[in-house]
Design a protein around this nucleic acid. Structure first.
Lengths: 110, 110
DNA sequence: TCCTTAATTTGCGCAACAGTTAATTAACAG
DNA sequence: CTGTTAATTAACTGTTGCGCAAATTAAGGA
């Protein structure tokens, strides 16, 4: 089992979050594509992918010499679940009324 | 402005996540209470609180010699917003994802 | 076999992080 | 002013994280 903090740690690096966003928007991608589009070396990307995989954020599919990566839905569900556990706290607050109304225009007694 | 990765980084430490959970469930608390309940020194807690504050996760209210801390709703909204941006990817059961997304709004709990 | 391509692992340097104890700042009471 | 309490900052130490270049593993083609 990977903990919630492990997931947050995996997503706390800009390079890794960028990798995850790519996989989310474009689906499964090979390591080579991810590495060639990044501005750091391939070994560095490989390490980031390993961190993400060990945190349970992404999964690997091997085909020949290629390794295809994709996001594990469970990881995002876990993060979402944590925020939802405390939804009553942040959804009902008027800390930033404008943002709240922008997210949920009919959320109050209009 | 604090980035999403800064928020994730702030929440990636078990001690800090624990502090945030305490503030979420019990509301505003002074630094002393948080420090006395932790198993590490007060200075260490103080630093964690500083990290959380600089990441925009918590806020501070000063009253006399006491510093009261509480969670900023905006922080949790931001995290929730990120998961919601990719909701189509992770929501629903894996094998029925496409079907679920194709269903109309009244389809899931009747 | 030999060579190329894909990707990872290794070795190394450096910066950042998390913990400690000691010192400091700040508010308040006597 | 002096002392007490609350909390933070300072100084130091060990560990972890991230980058690179070089070496290594693995699959496939001539």
């Amino acid at each position: 089992m990977t903990s919630l903090t492990d997931t947050f740690a995996a997503l706390s690096d800009p390079t890794r979050l960028s990798l995850v966003e790519k996989l989310l928007t474009r689906g499964e991608l090979p390591a080579g594509t991810l590495a060639s589009e990044a501005d750091i070396s391939a070994p560095a990307i490989s390490r980031h992918l390993k961190v993400l995989r060990e945190a349970g954020v992404i999964q690997q599919r091997v085909q020949g010499t290629h390794r295809y990566y994709s996001v594990r839905p469970e990881a995002l569900r876990t993060v979402n679940g944590w925020t939802m556990d405390h939804r009553a706290f942040w959804a009902g607050s008027l800390d930033r009324l404008d943002d709240l109304l922008a997210l949920d225009p009919e959320g109050d007694d209009t």
